[in-house]
Design a protein around this nucleic acid. Structure first.
Length: 786
DNA sequence: GCCTTGAAGTTACCG
DNA sequence: ACCGGTAACTTCAAGGCG
């Protein structure tokens, strides 16, 4: 199943349409006309249910109610009788819900905000991106539908345990717009290039005829429908390409008929754009998870993933695109650039789609939505799916005040170089704690309730109590996930790691891990339906207890603890002792602790969450330090990384000092390219909301004034130039405006970029700032007096 | 008016 | 629109001094 939607048929009946592929490779639709929308009403305590039922029934003529009945459900684990109200069409639900809410004797309505097609999938146990077996009857393909066969569901619809992924037709696309007047505006600026590539290797470029882009858009639409992709991929296509094309079509009075239903793309939930019958996947959503890449442009992500090297492709600054269009001699370059882009996008699809498909099948959100849904919503859909299986009602989303609670413990590290250090950590600490202590909103016992102390687990420090029996919602859900993952990992062992089957299972277990690990964070999120602060608070409290006891045990066994954070401890790697220690922890705490990595040498400063280490295979790990942060210049990061390498392998700061001298020399000699001197920082809110003029905000305002379009989340690249003014912000200039290296404030780069990152490491070895600066003959005296 | 100090604002990281 | 814990930088206003 690729996609699902619903429509109202001519006879006024809601019709679920499931778009997919059958086992013969036909593109098919399975229609179910038998399902109807419903929601629940909760009667107030002490009110006679039947009287409420009859009151609801009186609303029948106005709202086309089909059925009102009392059903037995559970709410937070407690049995409850609620009134199930079924009506004819989904669009009535919001009004009917309000009307029911107003009736006397009604406490609340539940599950009235679940979209009709999601309701269908939950109730019928239908999962997108998986196989199903359906008893069907074929009907004629409606006019305008781009599909091989259409069926009406006649009997059973059930899941198949087949986990293969059928051959999918994937189409990548990208558009370039005319931007001579700044950020392109669809009502004014044409789409000048549309590049397309399909996974059977076809490439095609549609170009405007001068400023006339109607034929390009038509050509693109025709090409798309001819290839008939199951999956359409773009890079930020939900944020730019589709909205632009749609607006442009509006201006040109064209119809962008690309859906399998013949419809146009339409804005849907979580800011994604839905193309009926196909999965429109924005790969940018998945690129956001690659934290190693700080500036997440298509080129950078493609480079990182080994899809396309930057030096093997055309790069054009976005702002200059129109110049390449206006100049006939340069136009070919622009077209080559557009092709490079779609090639990269299709390459990214290869990397991301296997995971996206598995995530969709685990969470139960359609493939085109699962990427754009936030982590919180992904977890929530997973929970809602499970809740139905337990006959549990889904709580409403309510606004609540934010109240902070204590989190994990971070140990002060022992500064310096340490040899032979093992890092042990608890596997899935929080999920396992929630399971073993049965922590859940439905097992929580509020302070005013009397309960036999032997029947509850009491959280340390905070005192929250949770029933030991029966198993709570979170426990059941997490236990299933962890078991599921374990089973998949077992299956993987039997497979060739280079096989497709292996990749599918690998991505599947990864999707499960992501959801399981995010569930703790979810329950402490005020926006969560199943929010319960005490649940989150108790989980971290038990986590603190666990790590404290682990540290105690290590010390008792004569193992020096160098550092620890949340669920990990760093100890001297004494093979036998560590082995016994692991056994002890597993036995005494009932939680599994495992060696994560062994460092030949590891280095700490006084700071928590920042260290670096040398692994046995020669790799170097950098954690938390500037070298891996996105808000330092490339130069500073390179310098620190090199210093770390020297110090960890040679145990001697002297060559590192020499190296710093050389870099400073080069910098003064203007031998460092400007690229390496750009500072990148995100805009996290509207520019007007900033209270202080930070450098990147000032730079962003300048970009805005020059006609650039900026949105929250954009990274601003700026450099520091020589200019009078007390504040650093006064010296910040967007790098795109700086043409000459001579404008740069080299002193800033030495004192505020190179020196701090170098001192962070070398300071521990007794090196001073002056020693780093004093490398050069001329500089030493100057700096001394300066 | 200048310099120091510390709180507040801000970003990006760890697990 | 998943959590809290943390480091580090810059800005900015208050306070001290002359």
């Amino acid at each position: 199943m690729l996609d699902i939607n619903y429509d109202i048929s001519k006879d006024g009946i809601p019709e679920i349409r499931m778009w997919g592929i059958d086992d013969n490779g036909n593109r098919v639709v399975v229609i179910d006309r038998t399902f109807r929308p419903y929601f629940y009403a909760v009667p107030e305590k002490g009110v006679e249910t039947q009287s409420v039922v009859s009151k609801i029934k009186k609303l029948e003529p106005k709202y086309k109610i089909l059925n009102v009945e009392v059903v037995s459900k559970k709410f937070y684990g407690k049995p409850i009788d609620v009134i199930k109200i079924t009506c004819q069409i989904p669009t009535i639900v919001p009004n009917l819900r309000e009307a029911v809410k107003k009736l006397p004797g009604i406490k609340d309505v539940l599950e009235a905000d679940i979209r009709f097609y999601m309701r269908y999938m939950i109730d019928k146990d239908v999962y997108p991106s998986t196989w199903h077996i359906a008893d069907v009857e074929e009907i004629e393909v409606p006019e305008k539908w781009r599909i091989d066969k259409v069926y009406v569901l006649k009997g059973d619809l059930r899941r198949s345990d087949e986990t293969t992924v059928p051959p999918l037709r994937v189409l990548a696309f990208d558009i370039e717009c005319y931007n001579k007047f700044g950020t392109p505006k669809p009502e004014r600026d044409p789409v000048i290039v549309i590049s397309v590539m399909t996974n059977n290797g076809d490439k095609k470029v549609f170009t405007a005829d001068g400023k006339n882009d109607a034929s390009a858009i038509k050509g693109f639409t025709e090409f798309l429908n001819k290839y008939d992709p199951d999956v359409i991929v773009g890079y930020n296509c939900n944020g730019f390409d589709w909205p632009y094309l749609l607006e442009r079509c509006k201006a040109l009075k064209l119809k962008l008929s690309v859906a399998r239903s013949g419809a146009q793309p339409a804005t849907s939930v979580y800011g994604h754009i839905s193309i009926i019958g196909r999965a429109n996947v924005d790969l940018y959503d998945f690129a956001e998870d690659i934290y190693e890449v700080k500036v997440k442009t298509l080129e950078n992500i493609a480079e990182y993933l080994g899809v396309k090297k930057k030096n093997e492709r055309i790069l054009i600054p976005g702002i200059d695109i129109y110049k390449y269009w206006d100049d006939p001699a340069k136009r070919e370059t622009l077209i080559r650039y557009a092709i490079d882009d779609v090639e990269s996008i299709l390459g990214l699809a290869d990397k991301f789609l296997p995971f996206a498909i598995q995530l969709s099948s685990i969470v139960g959100l359609p493939l085109d939505q699962v990427g754009s849904a936030s982590v919180g919503y992904r977890v929530e859909w997973h929970l809602m799916r499970q809740a139905y299986k337990f006959n549990e009602l889904v709580p409403n989303r309510v606004e609540r005040p934010y109240r902070p609670y204590r989190g994990a413990i971070v140990l002060k590290p022992k500064p310096g170089l340490h040899e032979n250090i093992a890092v042990l950590d608890f596997s899935s600490l929080y999920p396992n704690i929630m399971i073993s202590k049965n922590i859940s909103p439905d097992t929580y016992v509020p302070p005013y309730e009397k309960v036999d102390p032997s029947k509850v687990n009491i959280a340390p420090e905070v005192g929250h109590r949770f029933l030991k029996e029966p198993p709570g919602f979170y426990k059941k859900v997490l236990e299933r996930l962890l078991k599921f993952r374990k089973m998949i990992k077992e299956q993987m062992k039997k497979l060739d790691p280079t096989s497709i089957e292996y990749t599918i299972l690998y991505e599947r277990q990864r999707a499960i891990k992501v959801i399981a690990n995010a569930t703790y964070g979810y329950c402490g999120w005020v926006g969560a339906r199943w929010y319960k602060r005490e649940v989150a608070e108790a989980t971290t409290a038990w986590g603190r207890k666990t790590i404290r006891e682990t540290i105690e045990l290590a010390k008792k066994m004569g193992l020096r603890v160098i550092y620890g954070d949340t669920d990990s401890i760093f100890i001297k790697y004494d093979k036998d002792k560590v082995k016994r220690f692991i056994e002890e922890v597993n036995k005494k705490l009932g939680l599994e602790i495992k060696p994560d990595k062994i460092y030949i040498r590891v280095f700490f400063t006084e700071a928590k969450k920042r260290y670096c280490g040398l692994l046995s295979d020669g790799r170097i790990d950098v954690v938390g330090l500037e070298a891996i942060r996105g808000d330092w210049t490339e130069l500073a990061k390179e310098v620190q990384e090199e210093i770390i390498k020297i110090v960890l392998t040679k145990k001697d700061p002297a060559p590192a000092v020499k190296y710093v001298h050389e870099v400073i020399e080069k910098l003064r000699g203007k031998e460092i390219p400007m690229d390496k001197l750009i500072i990148w920082k995100s805009i996290t809110k509207k520019l007007s909301e900033y209270e202080v003029s930070a450098a990147h905000v000032v730079a962003a305002r300048k970009l805005l004034a020059a006609g650039y379009s900026l949105t929250v989340g954009d990274k601003i690249g700026y450099v520091i130039v020589k200019r009078p003014g007390g504040r650093l912000a006064d010296k910040a200039e967007p790098y795109v405006f700086v043409k000459d290296m001579d404008e740069l404030d080299i002193d800033y780069y030495i004192k505020k970029q190179i020196i701090p990152v170098a001192i962070r490491i070398l300071g521990y070895f007794g090196i001073s700032e002056n020693q780093l600066l004093a490398g050069r003959r001329q500089a030493s005296l100057f700096d001394f007096f300066g």
